[in-house]
Design a protein around this nucleic acid. Structure first.
Lengths: 83, 83
DNA sequence: CTGTATCCTAGATGATACTG
DNA sequence: CAGTATCATCTAGGATACAG
């Protein structure tokens, strides 16, 4: 807990179960999340080592997120929480 | 989620995995919880049907809490969240 | 497109005192 | 012992505007 004990962490992780996603697309999937919370939450997940962030040096900017090994280890729990 | 998405719900449920407990004892096991939050949270858990509350008509008052069937169904998740 | 910076509010939680 | 009532506080979260 603490790792997923927030309103958005579980949802973000859940949507990454199927593979990596571009920042914008991921955010769009999380219906109702504010831009602020999206960035903030993803950063925390990255800091906790559950998600990895990959930045492409292109223009316009491109960023992809995906579950890390540790993130994958929560797959069972995430699918249980589902909803 | 919503069922266990709070600071205390998981802990209370966790401590009931081993069996029923008297109110005071249960609260004492949840280190750091205020009296207010304890009662409030336990009431919500009861309302959600995860915990059952049994009152004994004795003096001094005695109340016991235990997991309901539905509460037990979360056992796996709870043990995973552990910590 | 992706991310940062503010300002602001509702709800969650804590501390304390009190009742049956 | 168990629970309620208040009041004060803290913080997650939302809205908005702006920057690289």
């Amino acid at each position: 807990m603490g790792l997923i004990g927030t309103k958005w962490k579980p949802l973000i992780l859940f949507h990454l179960l199927d593979g990596s996603l571009r920042s914008g697309l991921l955010q769009k999937k999380i219906s109702g999340i504010s831009n602020k919370m999206f960035t903030q939450t993803v950063r925390e997940l990255e800091k906790d080592g559950l998600v990895s962030r990959k930045v492409f040096a292109v223009v316009p900017p491109k960023v992809e997120y995906k579950l890390s090994e540790r993130g994958r280890s929560l797959e069972n729990i995430l699918r249980s929480l589902d909803t």
